[in-house]
Design a protein around this nucleic acid. Structure first.
Lengths: 110, 110
DNA sequence: TATTTATATTGCAATATTACGATACATATT
DNA sequence: AATATGTATCGTAATATTGCAATATAAATA
């Protein structure tokens, strides 16, 4: 085989995995960090900020977009990319859940 | 090529990507969720909780361990796995950073 | 209309991931 | 020592990801 057994897991588990996977590459972390840094959406120069060829960057942007972590809109000359807050909300709530569980956990192990 | 250009990114970016990637599979999300649910570490039956063969589960556990998201210790008969809080702290602080940036961002886009 | 500029798509090679059967290992029990 | 139980490793097939050159597309400008 080789393909993920997606159907064997819940929608929520798959959705979280997709979001996490999208962040599972340093270039995509770098893109997100850059979008946060410039603090706006007019950003027609993402390619120049990364040590990768233009088609590769385009592909990473596409994956982030598919996962729901960024949005892209036409903005005059170039395309304007920005953080999609909805996607980040979903992951964040997972980690908040994790934290909650960890805090009230008894200290009975490790 | 095909290999990730890891060396072109910062240590922090690579580390975050490794953590996110480890969570980028529904089986591994399921494992984390199960560990949180049982709320303890005596868990010699993770295999039975997942719709995957034992070697596959073992492999997923190894990846979570390598990424620093779970810890495994010998505990009598079976091996005791549990959440590694340190790994989760690292991701959490990234998302806190994201949130902070988003909150104070001007509404000048999208 | 021709040119420029920014981004997307295609095609392909190198590599990584996913899954599992077979098998090895390690510990406890008989 | 032999057996049982839980876990890890090996080997391998199927599939996915990564990266880029070449090329296509789309919008603004000359």
């Amino acid at each position: 085989m080789g393909a993920s057994k997606t159907h064997s897991f819940t929608n929520q588990q798959n959705e979280l995995a997709i979001l996490a996977k999208a962040l599972g590459h340093p270039a995509r972390i770098a893109i997100i960090e850059y979008l946060l840094k410039v603090d706006t959406c007019i950003c027609g120069d993402i390619v120049n900020e990364l040590p990768l060829a233009q088609p590769t960057v385009s592909q990473h942007l596409k994956e982030l977009k598919n996962a729901g972590l960024i949005k892209g809109n036409f903005e005059g000359v170039s395309i304007c990319y920005c953080i999609d807050e909805l996607g980040f909300e979903k992951i964040k709530s997972f980690f908040q859940d994790v934290t909650l569980h960890l805090e009230k956990r008894k200290n009975n192990c490790c």
